[in-house]
Every structure is written in C-alpha cells, then in structure tokens.
C-alpha cells in the first residue's frame, strides 16, 4: 500500500487507499471527539481552560483518518500506547 510516515510518527494513507487502510496499526493512536460533557469533565480534571491543552489543526490527517468532523474549540482524545504504558492525550481543535 502506498503510504508515508509523517514527521509526527503517524502513518498517512493516500486518499485513494483510505478505505483499505487498517486503523489497527500500532503506530496510529485512536482519535476520539469528545462530547461537550466529556470535554467539561476533562477540563475540570486538569483544572484548565481549553487553550491550555495542546493544539490540533482542524484539517489534521489524524482526524480525517477517523472521520472526525471537528470545529474550533472541540477537544480530541488520543489514546496512546507505549511499550511501558498507555494513556490518554487531549488536544484542542484550532
């Protein structure tokens, strides 16, 4: 399959091949769009405002891959896995 590895370590599939692309590849962390309630919960947990989270662009290939249509201010949960542990990472859409 035609793909390339991006600078951020993710894998980018070519547009044509999107459907044949396996989302279960270990290098691709799962992206999720949080509901307003979930978002509030996360912000409360860290005691921050949404600007204090790391950012993700609206047109980020990661979002495209998981078919997430996000608008500015949404929060994305990224489930990351390392050999030593797994954890949730959050980003604000800009």
């Amino acid at each position: 399959m035609d793909y390339k590895i991006t600078a951020a370590g993710g894998i980018l599939a070519k547009k044509k091949d999107e459907k044949t692309f396996s989302l279960e590849h270990f290098l691709i962390p799962v992206h999720e769009l949080l509901s307003d309630e979930q978002k509030k919960e996360v912000l409360l947990k860290f005691n921050i405002t949404e600007e204090q989270l790391p950012k993700i662009k609206k047109n980020d290939p990661g979002l495209k891959l998981f078919n997430i249509k996000a608008k500015q201010g949404d929060v994305i949960r990224i489930k990351r896995k390392d050999p030593t542990g797994s954890y949730d990472y959050y980003r604000t859409v800009i």
């Binding site: 860290f46 921050i48 600007e51 204090q52 989270l53 790391p54 990351r80 390392d82 030593t84 542990g85 954890y87 949730d88 990472y89 959050y90």
Partner: peptide, 10 residues
Amino acid sequence: SIIQTVFGGD
C-alpha cells in the same frame, strides 16, 4: 498549559 497528560507517557 499541559505538555504531557502523564509524565513521560508512563
């Protein structure tokens, strides 16, 4: 502002 949600990821 948050840089990592968990120190070192683990």
